[in-house]
Design a protein around this nucleic acid. Sequence first.
DNA 1: TCAGGGTCTGACCGATCGGTCAGGCATGCT
DNA 2: AGCATGCCTGACCGATCGGTCAGACCCTGA
Lengths: 195, 195
Amino acid sequence: MVRAVPDTHGEILAAAARRFTVTGYRGTSLQDIAREVGCSKATVLYHFANKEALLAELMAPAIEMLRGLDEQLGGLTGAAAQEVAAAGFVDLAVRFRREIAVLRGEFPELLCQPAFAHIQQISDRLRDALAGHSDRPGARIAALVLLAGISEACGEFADIPDEELRPALLALARRAVEPVDVPLPHPPTTEDKDS
Amino acid sequence: MVRAVPDTHGEILAAAARRFTVTGYRGTSLQDIAREVGCSKATVLYHFANKEALLAELMAPAIEMLRGLDEQLGGLTGAAAQEVAAAGFVDLAVRFRREIAVLRGEFPELLCQPAFAHIQQISDRLRDALAGHSDRPGARIAALVLLAGISEACGEFADIPDEELRPALLALARRAVEPVDVPLPHPPTTEDKDS
DNA sequence: TCAGGGTCTGACCGATCGGTCAGGCATGCT
DNA sequence: AGCATGCCTGACCGATCGGTCAGACCCTGA
């Protein structure tokens, strides 16, 4: 036994992650987290400035990976952007499915908080890339449904190992995105948007 | 002017629908709804027994349609079940996108309430049908992502007319579901589950 | 004119929320 | 021994939540 040091900070973080995935961010009180750790609510607030700071520290790795994907997507367009966006987001969703599940349905309110300032813009760009930067409604709808569906559903795949979940989601994403029409021999007419 | 009768009941219902779609069920207080209507919180609770009853009356038509779809799905299997489930759920999502958006992320807690007792089982059967009643992980994952994605995203399509949204979602659903392998001339081997 | 029922309201309730604060209690350094 | 520091706690705070209640305000019919 090298160390019996309690590491309360980490325990609180882990307990919060567990509770948030079950009852959501707003549905979990600091009292709940403290009870799960076995300490007082004041102790939770001793280790974290406030509830939002707890969430921010919990989401930091996922957000960093999302930011990295956004940079990769910077110069890409069309089918290349679709492929990178799909593979990158599937990777992110599989690895951080627990963290993403925390945001279940509370995204709109949460990303108003300063800690998640640019997430909305990043996910907008991610959706555009997945749609092949097309403005056809079908492409945008498919991209939005796919992103929302993977985000929403990945939390329920806790029993499926990563090496099985990842290819299944990726195959689904490749089927689901509306193929971009650039490689067609004859360029599309202007009526395409209304079809 | 045949009637200047206020119809406060209906106004409260409409205001609640508006607020719920923006800030969610738990994120909307009775005070918020009362403020939007222009009456007191006590008036809201005069017309509705409690907050849950308000939600139940708001969701009733959507739930009834979902129940009807469940009955249709009763005797179907394979590709037929997939097609009916996809078309039926897309119809439901398009028509009741506002109501479905209310449940954003609060599904797990809400369907514990007695008013939504059997919704969980119905949506489970809907997912099974969409997966062609296959137990392949890929099929179940695709069905779950599709249902969650449409539910989650449809609330953001307020600006897209029904006649445009419906075929786009239906085409996406048909692309996204993993095809059931019954009609194949050569029956699949047992390794298919692991591919 | 008055009684009665439907509609609405302000005041209030207990519970719970996130967050603050003074102080207790070890431990280790001087 | 005395002191400082880090960790933790119970008690408390104001705000807000869903919900209750007695009574005011109409309108209508006898």
